[in-house]
Amino acid sequence: MIGIGFIALVFVGLVVVVLAWVAGAYNGLVRLRNQLENAWAQIDVQLKRRHDLIPNLVETVKGYATHERETLEKVIQARNMAVSAKTVGDRAEAENVLTGALKSLFAVAEAYPDLKANSEFMRLQEELTSTENKVAFARQFYNDTVMTYNTHIEVFPTNFIATMFNFGRREFFEVKAEDERDAPAVKF
């Protein structure tokens, strides 16, 4: 009699321990997922800010650099593409193109001393450069979080919890800038 009671007690104890672990692991995953959502929101804020700054920049540059219609149009086109992109992958692609277009715009601006001295242009350049950095840093944090999250849902034994409650893998926000994509050709 005592034996059965004891076994029942041990069994109940085990169930409680397992349940507590499941709850802990589940909460951990939820916390990570929320952190992930927040990290993504931060990238989003910066990308939106960049989209908002570009029309101002284009207006300012137009007044000085009248011969650079092509470059300006490319920037606007890239911006509109980025605004309308839907998935994470598409978005990353479009933002890359936009980064490249902006780079060439700032390179063109080097040839116009009046433009470079314009205080509004200087302000916009600092804001855009910093926004670019902010996108990069927010992306960096997002990818770190994705990495931790993906590791968590794949390793034993949390992977059981992940499949049980439908925690899916997340995509990285990859950036391969044009000059990064073509590996530098080294010749001797």
């Binding site: 931060q42 302000r123 804001e127 910093s130 840093f137």
Partner: peptide
Amino acid sequence: SPQLFNIVDEMRLASGLG
């Protein structure tokens, strides 16, 4: 000092500080 604020904001994003 917009630049200093930008630098701090950049590092806030990199650290994930709320």
